[in-house]
């Protein structure tokens, strides 16, 4: 019974984290057709910025509660700055190029950003564990569980709904949806596609940075933390269907529970759990669970 509780909680908590790191990737792909490898670097930047900002904050002896507000501010500012620099500086010059080529562009960006992070922060570990310990733990069915992890679940739900709301209800969001449906017609109807792209990329980047910011208190912020994230995020969005936001949520749940199940029941398969799910889903539904139907060119 305790094992069952543990699997439910662990699966949920891991799924929430996966959703946070993957949803920005799927948004950017859906709108811009860019499979962004630099997403992992954005995640790492988020973690580093959070660690530095909170490090300064705590060293001033300020009250712990407002640290969470600072984390939010840090994520927004860092995401916006990094996202716009990359979009304006590099990607803007390359729109309309081959999809695979864009993957390589973002791969090159990833390499550059990885070393940039290393040059700014060095290779030593950074720690900000105070937020993780702030709320302590509660016992659920005899199993101690960090409240912070449960808050990440809440955050993932809130951010998912907010994103959905933005896309469906706001003016900019509806323009974005129009661009997804047909880039050329949208442009003809007077939508500023480049602006839509810039906004989308910034939002996607903010999501990646948020992922890094909320993870920073749980880990040692060290070089290389972005690498594993990319591949996990890819798997999640491919399972759900590239470019679909509900797909990213479902993909995260699938992958999250696959890992939780394997850790508790068959730890030796943990390494393949996520790829196995991905392979099985693609074998049955080649375009992912929530893929849009695409037209055939004749």
């Amino acid at each position: 019974m305790q094992k069952f509780t543990a699997i439910m909680l662990d699966g949920m908590s891991y799924a929430a984290w996966l959703f946070l790191v993957a949803v920005g990737l799927t948004l950017i792909y859906g709108v811009m057709r860019i499979l962004n490898i630099a997403h992992g670097a954005f995640y790492a930047i988020g973690a580093y910025v959070c660690a530095s900002a909170l490090g300064v904050y705590y060293s001033l002896g300020l009250p712990g509660v407002f640290a969470f507000a600072l984390m939010g501010v840090v994520a927004l500012v860092a995401g916006l700055i990094v996202g716009l620099i990359v979009e304006r500086g590099v990607l803007r010059n390359l729109y309309g190029r081959d999809e695979v080529l864009m993957v390589l562009v973002t791969y090159a960006l990833f390499l550059i950003l990885e070393d940039a992070v290393k040059l700014i922060w060095g290779v030593k570990s950074y720690f900000v564990y105070q937020p993780y310990a702030h709320f302590g733990f509660i016992e659920i069915g005899g199993l101690p569980y960090q409240v912070y992890d449960l808050l990440i679940v809440a955050l993932a739900v809130v951010m998912g709904i907010a994103l959905w709301f933005w896309l469906e209800r706001s003016r900019m969001g509806r323009m974005t949806t129009a661009v997804v449906a047909d880039r050329e017609i949208s442009a003809a109807m007077g939508i500023n596609v480049k602006r839509v792209f810039a906004t989308t990329f910034a939002i996607g980047t903010i999501f990646a940075v948020v992922g890094g910011v909320v993870t920073a208190p749980k880990i040692a912020v060290t070089p290389g933390i972005g690498v594993e994230v990319i591949i996990l995020a890819f798997a999640v969005v491919v399972i759900g269907g590239l470019g679909s936001i509900p797909g990213a949520a479902i993909g995260a749940v699938f992958a999250g529970y696959a890992r939780a199940l394997s850790v508790h029941l068959a730890p030796e398969f943990e390494l393949f759990a996520i790829y196995a799910v991905m392979a099985v889903v693609l074998a049955i539904r080649p375009h992912g669970l929530f893929a849009r139907a695409s037209g055939r060119k004749i």
Binding site: L104, Y107, A108, L111, I112, D115
Partner: peptide, 20 residues
């Protein structure tokens, strides 16, 4: 040795931009 990935990435970008 500390920034070789950055050089590699920059060369890649340059090739993509200059030699489409």
């Amino acid at each position: 040795p500390n920034a070789w990935q950055m050089i590699l990435g920059s060369v890649m970008l340059a090739v993509i931009l200059l030699l489409p």
